[in-house]
Amino acid sequence: MIEIENLYKSFNGNDVLKGLSLKVKEGETTAVIGRSGCGKSVLLKHIIGLLRPDKGDVWVDGQNVKKLKRNELYKLRLKMGVVFQSSALLDSLSVGENVALGLTENIRISRARVREIVLEKLSLVELEGVEHKRISELSGGMKKRVAVARALAVNPSYILYDEPTTALDPITARTINELMLSLKKKIRITGIVVTHDMESAFYVADRIAMLHDGKIIFDGTPMEVQTTSDPIVQRFVKGGGKY
């Protein structure tokens, strides 16, 4: 379980998170929606301990992330896979090496076993025969899939997606949504999807939380999101307008 309590973060006087609280239950996928620049990526970075909160705590499986020592934090991160907004594949490595990185750098493991896992994860994201390709040869959608495979390589209990469908065409975005849904069903992974793509949120999420002005102002099932009378949420869901 991931629990975020009263999180505050500002960058040089720019208050981004102002008392954010959120619970993510085991086995569920939670979508965090909000406008561009509202601090969604900042929230994710707090969950994996890349940023330190000014105030408040992030609890992952009962551990307080900001209190962990470096090696403990690294151990915790092996339980979390992250798919970055820009995919963030290492372009000096091949596709296979990217997927294998978390394994080869952290665990004593035979080459044959690594290869096996790499192929398994790549087929899980429906990519075959690409492990020797260079990153620059891949399309945006393929990069996303490789990033998902890399995040899954260490068999994490959580997967965090940072805007998995933005910057993709509608059809590719759709296939990524299907992938996220099928992963949830196949490996019962707990997920957080940060996005401003409502279609994607409705497609994959069990719960949808809205981040606005540094706080979670709404948290409910997709059904509740559609029927809520909260004007800010309504505006966001319907698109357009000022809020």
Binding site: K45, K75, V82, A88, L89, L90, R150
Partner: peptide, 21 residues
């Protein structure tokens, strides 16, 4: 340039997230 590119394209964050220092 190499490391800077990795920094601005989140590759360094990705390393951290994979528990690679």
């Amino acid at each position: 340039a190499e490391i800077g590119t990795m920094k601005v394209t989140e590759q360094i964050d990705a390393l951290e997230s994979l528990a690679v220092d």
